[in-house]
């Protein structure tokens, strides 16, 4: 999980899936029963069938109705992504599956905490860049800073790269959560 497996696509004879013109990323939202074992079912489905998981997030979203929402970022050919959705949908505790990438514009955000260690000019540079990226300082010592930052994945990536020469010490990211733009809603079940 969280590992980009695209560099090691599942071995298929002859056809490299990445060379297929329909190969794409997909952000899939899954509304599930909040019950024991549901995450294992979803993750097991991906590992058992050799699908990629680039990120996966899960949390309860409706305690009263015992619903959790899983957001999975995956990749594959159109045929594989169709399969992923159909396979998810036939899990018994799954209420709804939505391919946000396919179904229209959507917002995708990640939360990151990033620790930078350093003093003097490096520290000042880190704070200046954080300001430009709208990262918040959530912890500080005389030799370290922790920034909190939300945004699209590429924005987070860019910030990490900028911090690397300055004293990047540690990164933790939540993975993507996503929601459709406009009035469309997944939980209207």
């Amino acid at each position: 999980m969280g590992v980009d497996q695209r560099r090691h696509p599942p071995s298929r004879l002859k056809n490299d899936p990445m060379s297929d013109p329909s190969y794409r990323n997909a952000t899939i939202a899954v509304l599930v029963e909040n019950e024991a074992g549901i995450l294992a079912r979803v993750v097991g489905l991906f590992s058992g069938r050799g699908y990629n998981i680039e990120s996966l997030t899960v949390a309860p979203v409706d305690e009263a109705r015992r619903l959790s929402r899983i957001t999975i970022v995956t990749s594959g050919t159109d045929m594989v992504i169709e399969q992923i959705k159909a396979q998810l949908d036939r899990l018994v505790p799954v209420h709804k599956v939505s391919d946000l990438t396919l179904e229209g514009p959507h917002l995708a955000r990640e939360l990151m905490l990033i620790k930078v260690v350093g003093k003097g000019e490096n520290r000042m540079e880190a704070l200046r860049l954080a300001d430009a990226f709208r990262a918040r300082v959530v912890d500080a010592t005389t030799e370290s800073l922790v920034f909190e930052m939300t945004g699209a994945g590429d924005k987070l990536d860019a910030f990490i790269e900028l911090m690397r020469p300055i004293g990047l010490a540690e990164v933790t990211r939540t993975g993507v959560v996503a929601i459709a733009r406009g009035p469309r809603s997944l939980s209207g079940i």
Binding site: M79, E82, Q83, A86, Q87, D89, R90
Partner: peptide
């Protein structure tokens, strides 16, 4: 009856 059987191996 199983949508995941459709377009799995053969389009």
């Amino acid at each position: 009856i199983d949508p995941s059987s459709i377009n799995k191996n053969v389009k």
